[in-house]
Amino acid sequence: MADNSSNNAYWAANVRIILWSLVLWAIVSFGFGILLRPLLSGISVGGTDLGFWFAQQGSILVFLGIIFFYAWRMNKLDAEHGVDEQ
């Protein structure tokens, strides 16, 4: 059984990964899809601009990437800290 200090390091690492993932989550949806759309209006994609693409396609694809990255990264972290399921 892992001791408590290892658990704390494990949890701190987990929270850090979550925070970065959520930053990316917010940038692609609220950022590129809505608030930053005017900034991206110069980049045209298929008859419209990049912001429109992020709002209707890109954000969903990035969400998928985030969840699979998190699952992969956390399974590795579990093993590193000896808290994985046997």
Partner: peptide
């Protein structure tokens, strides 16, 4: 609707 109903899964998976 597209972003809202899919983005919730990120919260669900991580939190």
């Amino acid at each position: 609707y597209l972003m809202g109903w899919t983005g919730g899964y990120v919260l669900l998976a991580l939190l």
